[in-house]
Design a protein around this nucleic acid. Structure first.
Length: 453
RNA sequence: GGUAACGUGGCGGAAUGGUUACGCAGAGGAUUGCAAAUCCUUGUAUCCCGGUUCGAUUCCGGGCGUUACCUCCA
């Protein structure tokens, strides 16, 4: 397959043909979690979206050609605050949230990135980058704080379409007596007695937000790399500041050539965010839904669009996967997905377009040959669906049942007796009762079978 | 106030300068004791006003509306 990949580039605001810096090598950096609280559905979207992009890139460039780096930020003001609130030592908190995050990734069927560096393991490199920035007059020290001097970087605001005057006029920037200018942001700050610290030329302290991404992307992908991803809300200030730091420290023109940002998950059309108090934890879904259902739901809209999260969406996705399992036919054969079927994914990760193709392949597979079913299964597998054996999917459904199989067959016997007696009122009552409990009865060829709705 | 995104049938959601998305729901039919499941059939929608064009839902301008970012947020 030699089709081009297109991506919506936030830098410039247009869909562009993807051309990697090196012909047969792709580097992608995605902002991972700050591990201070349980991951929620909003966090799940970039996990699934960039997992898909990883798969598509590997499909085109080869599985070894793509380096996917996703950081874990394990030192930050939010973590310190959360640790105090929860009365848990910081390292315990970050370890347990990181573990939960990985469990959630598995639940959503996301494969591991190539590297998953932690901020606290790279403090030395951060200090080096700060020193470079001070030397080249892009940063200054003030009362044991180091600030980035935004005015000295003329391209500041290019990604987020902001200019300095507006930012200052907005005056929502954090005011601090130590700053020379209100728009400056902190690279290093002193730690209080009860806060974690690292030794530095400017005293014991800790890094500002933003810096870990600049340092770790450089470490694994170089000064300039291909794709940088994350949620829309990171565009400003996080990515803007990353760009400023990296370009000034590395003396390059660009940090990443393609900036890819996913839209938000909303609840009743309003952004799902901790500050709004309307977050749904990923783990809350585990008892009721197989992770594939969430994964499909997260792919049901284009990644740049907002996605409203509700029960109807979940139910539709559940029904779709349940239906698709009828054609589940795993195989070790190498069956290639047709270019025309794959094409929507190459075109800016158009997941709804690909899902439409899957529906078409399903219809073909349903009455088709084994090979059609195998192709359909492989096409689902490509985006991380139908990877679990069917009995695992059924098992999950059975766990939710309130009736035992024995009770169900007793009810069915009762109903069939009633039918023989032509007591259809009773028969229908039993059937409806079972349906209420999620058991679907089918009379076929004189036999009655049941399945879980 | 500044900066963006979006506005498609009952709902969700793609695409597109002239013809079909797709899914769910609904309707009709086959089947059935009745159902369910399944199968078959069925949908002519692009916020408003101008402009460009032979032709715009699609491009351009204006308006209205919704949302987001400008403070931590995926």
């Amino acid at each position: 397959m030699n089709k081009d990949i297109y991506l919506s580039n936030s830098l410039g605001g247009k869909k562009e043909k993807f051309v990697p810096i090196k012909k047969d090598q792709v580097g992608m950096y995605v902002c991972g979690p700050t591990v201070y609280d349980d991951p929620h559905i909003g966090n799940a979207r970039p996990l699934v979206i960039f997992d898909l992009l990883f798969k598509v890139l590997k499909c085109k460039y080869g599985s070894k050609a793509v380096t996917y780096v996703r950081n874990i930020t394990d030192i930050d003001d939010k973590i310190i605050k959360s640790s105090k609130e929860k009365k848990i030592p910081i390292s315990d908190l970050t370890k347990s949230i990181t573990k939960k995050f990985h469990t959630d990734c598995d639940y959503l069927i996301c494969e591991s990135p190539s590297y998953e560096p932690r901020a606290t393991e790279n403090i030395k490199l951060m200090i080096e980058m700060i020193s470079d920035l001070i030397k080249s007059n892009f940063a200054y020290e003030s009362e044991k704080h180091i600030y980035f001097k935004v005015k000295n970087f003329k391209d500041y605001g290019k990604l987020s379409n902001k200019n300095l005057e507006d930012l200052i006029a907005g005056s929502r920037v954090e005011v601090s007596e130590n700053k020379k200018n209100p728009e400056d942001f902190v690279l290093w700050k002193p730690s209080k007695d009860d806060e974690p610290f690292w030794e530095s030329p400017w005293g014991n302290g800790r890094p500002g937000w933003h810096l870990e991404c600049s340092v770790m992307s450089k470490k694994y992908l170089g000064d300039t790399f291909d794709i940088h991803g994350g949620g829309r809300d990171l565009i400003f200030p996080h990515h803007e500041n990353e760009i400023a730091q990296s370009i000034c420290a590395n003396k390059t023109k660009n940090l990443a050539n393609y900036w890819v940002h996913n839209g938000f998950i909303t609840m009743s059309k309003e952004k799902m965010a901790k500050s709004q108090g309307n977050v749904l934890k990923i783990s809350d879904f585990k008892s009721n839904y197989n992770g594939q259902v969430l994964r499909l739901a997260l792919m049901s809209a284009h990644y740049t669009q907002p996605l409203d999260w509700n029960n109807k969406l979940m139910n539709e996705c559940y029904k779709t996967i349940n239906k698709w399992y009828d054609c589940y036919s795993p195989t070790n054969k190498k069956i290639l997905i047709k270019d025309e079927d794959l094409q929507p994914l190459y075109d800016d990760l158009n997941t709804p377009g690909y899902l439409a193709n899957l529906h078409k392949l399903y219809i073909k597979a349903k009455d088709g040959s084994l090979k059609d079913k195998e192709l359909f299964t492989i096409a689902c597998n490509f985006i991380g669906l139908l990877r679990q054996p069917k009995d695992q999917w059924d098992k999950f459904k059975k766990e939710k049942l309130s009736l035992s199989e024995k009770e169900i067959s007793e009810k069915i016997n009762d109903r069939n007796k009633a039918r023989e007696d032509k007591n259809y009122k009773l028969a229908d009552k039993i059937r409806d009762e079972l349906l209420d409990k999620g058991i679907l009865i089918e009379d076929k060829d004189g036999k009655t079978t049941w399945k879980i709705k």
